[in-house]
Structures are given as structure tokens and as C-alpha cells.
Design a protein around this nucleic acid. Structure first.
Length: 467
RNA sequence: GGGACCGUAGGGUAGCUUGGUCGAUCCUUUGGGCUUUGGGAGCCUGAGACUCCGGUUCAAAUCCGGGCGGACCCA
């Protein structure tokens, strides 16, 4: 995969994930195969989230006055908001924004809902589309103007400590979620100048795409009381006094799917982790004139056998040569191909091909078949996970030389360095190196000096080329 | 925000410099038929395009201007 950008673009359309030819920049269609990958990914996400939050659905439009209330927040988004200005032929009295994110849609309602400490914590989330008028190059799933799959969770708490704990909880959920998908990540505390507009601090998950650029795949923000003060979200505590709530929010987007596709894929196409693959097993019947019915009957029988254990199975009975089917399903990334022909029936066996290694395995058509197949699927999950993490580790380098950093980044690495943590210093580093600081990766206990050679270094920070 | 580039069937392209021979090339895709099926088959026969608007001209895929869309570099 020497040109990742091209690979990603081509595969998205070839495999029917998205169609970017919709005539509006940055907006594309989720095609059926992609939509299913998205569906299974969201199923997993909801399983995790539903234990922590309740799902809701807020309106798409936000009144201009609400959006404008929080100054810091507005500043961060003002250049990328889409506006609805007309109803039919009539100009609207008040312009309505297509949500770029939903703080300003949700928090005025939180102010109504939250009366007492008994109402806290309040933890809601929604999975919706959001709109941002991106001026940079858009690309499907990675930089879009309509984020079709924007998961945002918004919580309100009685104390600062509780909010801080909530941030940790969301981070745990994200870790588990990404682990489930075999997506490796780096966690950073975003630098002051790059945190979410209006947040006290932002914790971010980045993953390293095959071309070495990092992709932000998740964020958790501690909002402190900034929004609570703006939207007047107060509660009555046990003593009968009014206090502002402490808030957090956490977001994920389509980019998770982009990472899923990009990180596991190879020259032959997608390699989907079984948990999210639309089909986990594809049965390919090898048909001749003789014995056709028997082969098809056996395929049906196997399909039922697998489905009884909740596996997703299909039989590719298209009237084309088997070779073409093998290529097709490798491109689509189906974890296991199972081929069955008259010869197999006679010998009471079958051949499966696993997508991760393309290894062919002979299996007996006996009582162990189902378990053997499940073992392979589980092994595949683990191998894809390990493989992706190993790739990430290979691209993680440390440097204490400002001049060396650009070279390392150009070679596709993310670079760790000692940093004092000062904003001015950080921005200077970004200017010299000409790449972005992802943020603080770790705190430093031992004595060290900042890479700029002056102050004491308190942190290990990361710098990289970003999407 | 600044710069330079691109737009021909569903996808990829030839043609554009020097306007006419374009009733537009080739590959892929695709409908129908025959034949075949253990790793992308073959043959026959159909289908499918000059981004849009305006201008120059006897004549525009080709030249000019603008819109829309795409891709890129710099800040």
C-alpha cells in the first residue's frame, strides 16, 4: 500500500462503502456494504455506551442566539457553520444553524431539566449528523462537510471531581471500543491552543494511518463550568444553595470507520475484523453440471449450522466462475471463505481461506466444524489487533533533536519529545518543525530538559503530521 | 487566505498544442445469447461520454470568460 490516499479512495468506491460523487463537496453516500460495517460498529458502540448514558435525539437546527451565547465556543466554529436563512421564499426572523456539534442545542434544555442534585448526574448521548463548512480538502469519512455519524455524549455533574471521573470513564469506554475493533491509539492531552473551544481540557485519541499521518478518532472534554455559566445550568444542592453543574462531553465520528478500513486493509482489499464484517463467512459453492443439487443442499445446511450460532453467513451463488468470487470477497474483506464442491462432498471435507493471512485450511465436515471455524474467527480478531498495534509501535519514535524531527515525521513516524509545556514554546516548536503537536502524552518525573534546551521538561509530548 | 492544476460512457483513458477528416479511441463496466465453472474464462451481439452557462467563429471536445465539481501546493 504505497499510496494510502489513493488506496483508500479507490477501495471506498470499489467495495461499496461510500460514493463520493454526490454533487456537493464533502458529502457522500453510505453505500450498502459500508452502511452495514457502520451498523455493526454502532451496535458495539451502543452496547458500551448504553451502560453509561441514555440515548436521545435533539433537533438539527440551532437558533442563532443560542449558538452565539458562548463566545469561546462560537469562535471555534463560526467559520464553518451552515445557515438556514429562508423558509420558502421568506427570510427567517432568526437564522438557524445546522449543528456543527450540539452543546448549544442541548444545554439550554439541560438548564430546564436540571433542578436539583437529585437530577444529577445527567448523562445523555446521541448519534446524529452534523455539518461543518470545511474549507480544506475533503475526503470521504476523514474530512467531510456532513459528518453522518457523530456520536456525542454530554454529561452534567454536581462536583468537579465527578466530572473528572467521568472523563476517565469515557476514556475507558473508548479504549474498550477501539480494542474491540483492533484499532490502536495514542492518548494525548491536547495543548491549550488546540483544545475544544470552551473546554477546560481535551483528551484525544489519535491513530496512525498507514501513510504516517495521525487521525483523531475520539475526544473527551472536561468543560468545567464554562457552559453551565453561559446557559445558566444550576442545581440546588443538599444545603439548598444554587450551584453550577460541571460538564463533560465526548465525541466519535465516521473517522472510526476510516481507521477500521485503513489500518487493517492490505493490497488485496479490506481485512475486516469479524465483529464488524457484514458477513463473517462466505460460502462459495463449486458447481458442475453433475451433483449440483447435492452441493447446494450441503451449503444451505452449513449456512444454517453457522447461523444457529449467530454468525453472519452468505452463499455466493452468482453464476460466475469461482475464481472471480474469491477475488471479490477478498476485496470486501470477509474473514472466512468456505469453498465446497463435489470433491469435498465425496471426501467429507471443505477448504476455508482466512482473509488475514490468506492461509487455506482443510477442515473435516464433522461435528467439530463449527467450533473450528469459530476458533479461526477468534484467532483472526487477535491477529488483526496485534498486527495493528505492532505497526503503530514501529511508527513511534523518540527524539531530542529538533532538526531530526521533520525527517522522522516525513518517514511516517509520530515523534515523542521532552517538553516544558509552555504554550509559547510549543507554538514555536510547531513553527520550527512545521508539524502539529498532538499534545501531552505522559508526565515526566525524572530530570530532563525541554527539547528547546532551556526549561525543565515536565512532559513527553507527541508531534506528527495530522489529517 | 494565497498560488497553480484538472473536468471526454459507471471507472480509467486517446484526441485539445495547430478548431473542420469526431458519426469520438482503447481498456474496464454493463444488457442479451452460446459455452464454461476447484483462483479474475472465451466467443457473438447490443448499451453507454465531450461538466454547465455564456462568448469568439461559417464551424468548438478543442480557443476565451464565469459557475459548479475534483485534486494539489503554500500560509
Amino acid at each position: 500500500m504505497e499510496n494510502f490516499s489513493e488506496w483508500f479512495h479507490d477501495i471506498s468506491e470499489e467495495v461499496n462503502i461510500t460514493d463520493a460523487r454526490y454533487p456537493i463537496k464533502g458529502m457522500s453516500i453510505w453505500m450498502p456494504y459500508g452502511f452495514q460495517i457502520r451498523k455493526y460498529t454502532l451496535e458495539i458502540l451502543r452496547e458500551f455506551l448504553d451502560e453509561e448514558c441514555e440515548e436521545t435525539l435533539f433537533p438539527l437546527l440551532i437558533p442563532e442566539a443560542e449558538l452565539a451565547k458562548e463566545g469561546l465556543h462560537v469562535k471555534g466554529f463560526e467559520d464553518e457553520v451552515y445557515w438556514v436563512t429562508k423558509g420558502g421564499q421568506k427570510d427567517l426572523n432568526e437564522c438557524l444553524a445546522l449543528r456543527p456539534t450540539s452543546e448549544t442545542a442541548m444545554y439550554p434544555m439541560y438548564a430546564l431539566w436540571i433542578r436539583s442534585h437529585i437530577d444529577l448526574p445527567m448523562k445523555y448521548y446521541q448519534i446524529v449528523n452534523t455539518f461543518r463548512y470545511e474549507t480544506k480538502h475533503t475526503r470521504p469519512l476523514i474530512r467531510v462537510r456532513e459528518i453522518t455519524t457523530f456520536k456525542e455524549a454530554h454529561t452534567a455533574h454536581a462536583t468537579k471531581e465527578e466530572a473528572a471521573e467521568q472523563v476517565e470513564t469515557f476514556m475507558e469506554i473508548y479504549k474498550n471500543f477501539f480494542d474491540c475493533l483492533g484499532i490502536p491509539f495514542l492518548i494525548c492531552k491536547r495543548p491549550e491552543w488546540d483544545k475544544f473551544p470552551g473546554a477546560d481540557y481535551t483528551m484525544a485519541f489519535d491513530t496512525i494511518m498507514p501513510d504516517g499521518k495521525t487521525l483523531q478518532i475520539g475526544t473527551v472534554h472536561n468543560l468545567g463550568t464554562t457552559f453551565a455559566k453561559t446557559f445558566d445550568i444550576q442545581f440546588e444542592n443538599k444545603e439548598g444553595e444554587h450551584e453550577y453543574v460541571y460538564q463533560t462531553c465526548a465525541g466519535l465520528s465516521d473517522r472510526v470507520i476510516a481507521a477500521l478500513i485503513g489500518l487493517h486493509g492490505d493490497e488485496k482489499g479490506l481485512r475486516l475484523p469479524p465483529v464488524v464484517s457484514p458477513k463473517q463467512i462466505t460460502i462459495i459453492p463449486i458447481l458442475f453440471k453433475e451433483g449440483k443439487e447435492e452441493v447446494i443442499a450441503k451449503c444451505d445446511e452449513l449456512k444454517k449450522l453457522f447461523e444457529a450460532r449467530d454468525l453472519r453467513v452468505n452463499i455466493d451463488d452468482r453464476d460466475i466462475r469461482p475464481g472471480k468470487k474469491f477475488y471479490d470477497w477478498e476485496l470486501k474483506g470477509t474473514p472466512i471463505k468456505l469453498e465446497l464442491g463435489p470433491r469435498d462432498l465425496k471426501n467429507n471435507k471443505t477448504i476455508i481461506t482466512r482473509r488475514d493471512t490468506l492461509e487455506k485450511i482443510d477442515l473435516e465436515l464433522d461435528d467439530n466444524l463449527l467450533n473450528n471455524v469459530i476458533d479461526v474467527l477468534e484467532d483472526m480478531d487477535e491477529k488483526l489487533y496485534n498486527n495493528a498495534w505492532n505497526n503503530q509501535e514501529d511508527k513511534f519514535k523518540f527524539s531530542d533533536d529538533l532538526e531530526e524531527i521533520p525527517k522522522l515525521i516525513e518517514e511516517g513516524n509520530v515523534v515523542a519529545f521532552n517538553w516544558c509545556g509552555d504554550t509559547e514554546c510549543g507554538q514555536e516548536i510547531e513553527e520550527i518543525v512545521d508539524y502539529d503537536i498532538l499534545g501531552i502524552y505522559e508526565e515526566l518525573d525524572e530530570d530532563a530538559t525541554c527539547i528547546t534546551g532551556e526549561e525543565r521538561a515536565n512532559y513527553i509530548a507527541l508531534i506528527a503530521k495530522t489529517y
